[in-house]
């Protein structure tokens, strides 16, 4: 909006906000390492990644929606719904290995369906995104409670043992992260991402240049549903059971992660990769505060202040 002040260094930085986020992440990592000397051991790194992974995955999906100039407040409820569908299908089919695959498939389909509903309402019927995804979030959450009224219904040991285990010498959680990065790299090379950014930046112009605006926005919501489903399957592997209230705070933390990763909420800029870094930064802030041994009752306040400052900093860097 403001005419660019032509400072080449700043201009270069604007398109690489994720570099700033990455620097912050490295700094936080070093501080964490100083405070917690056993951080760089396979077990500690793995348990950290296990904790961060759900936010990372949800944030990736959210980043596509935000790039398109929309927002999705329902991702937390999608996580809950996918979880109860998955554990219920596994239990209903007897809990063997084929049942686990069926459950995972049903969970992914559920996530995609939820994203499709959001997309059709918002891009198809032109509903307002904030209120609509709040409403569909209530509906998805209600359905989750219908399917599984209380927490429980354990998943078979094969599920959580595999998730907590290793394949080819690397932990499965790391494979999940690698797979997610590969998927976003593939998406980043498709024309879709340019179109989505155009739709988020200048919707009217995008429409006039002949882009199928509605279809592109719907696809972004479907991706958000899909990645919420991935996050849910990971959380299910971590908790090893069903919980209709799972993922309550994921919508808000995913939005924070996307903004930290350098996206403008107005749409048109930012990247899924930045969102990954943003989610890791959020997680590391929590770690550092925990290990800095602040008095317990001050930890939430300090975390809130640092997160607010980080968000403000992210927004400022993204604009200059």
């Amino acid at each position: 909006m403001t005419p660019a002040r032509t400072n080449p260094a700043m201009a270069a930085l604007r398109n690489r906000v994720w570099l700033v986020t990455l620097s912050a992440l490295i700094a936080l990592f070093v501080i964490n390492w100083i405070l917690q000397p056993n951080l760089v051991t396979p077990n500690v790194l793995k348990s950290n990644l296990t904790v961060f992974l759900p936010v990372v995955l949800v944030a990736i999906g959210q980043s596509y929606v935000i790039l398109g100039g929309d927002i999705d407040l329902s991702v937390g409820s999608i996580v809950a719904l996918v979880n109860v569908v998955t554990v219920s299908v596994i239990a209903a089919l007897g809990g063997g290995v084929p049942a686990i695959f069926a459950g995972i498939g049903a969970g992914i389909l559920t996530g995609v369906a939820c994203g499709l509903v959001n997309g059709l309402l918002i891009a198809g019927l032109r509903f307002q995104a904030i209120v609509t995804t709040f409403a569909t979030g209530i509906i998805f959450g209600g359905l989750a409670l219908r399917i599984l009224p209380t927490a429980g219904l354990p998943v078979p040991a094969e599920y959580w043992r595999t998730y907590g285990g290793a394949v080819l010498g690397l932990p499965v959680v790391l494979w999940v992260l690698i797979l997610a990065l590969v998927i976003i790299a593939i998406i980043a090379r498709r024309p879709f991402i340019k179109h989505l950014s155009a739709v988020g930046g200048l919707r009217q112009a995008a429409f006039q240049s002949g882009l199928p605006v509605a279809r592109i926005r719907i696809l972004a919501y479907v991706l958000a549903g899909l990645f919420a489903a991935f996050a849910s399957l990971c959380l299910t592997g971590e908790t090893a059971s069903g919980d209709p209230l799972m993922g309550r705070l994921l919508a808000l933390s995913s939005i924070s992660a996307v903004v930290l990763g350098g996206a403008a909420l107005a749409g048109g800029s930012g990247s899924a990769f930045g969102a990954v870094l943003g989610a890791l930064v959020l997680g590391m802030i929590g770690n550092v505060i925990f290990f800095a041994r602040f008095p317990f009752e001050y930890q939430t306040l300090i975390q809130g202040l640092i997160t607010l400052l980080a968000l403000a900093g992210g927004v400022l860097v993204a604009r200059r």
Partner: peptide
């Protein structure tokens, strides 16, 4: 010029703390 959604969300965390 922080987007209101982000600013007030961040403030929520501070006040809750």
């Amino acid at each position: 010029r922080i987007p209101p959604l982000v600013m007030t969300l961040g403030m929520t965390g501070v006040v809750q703390g």
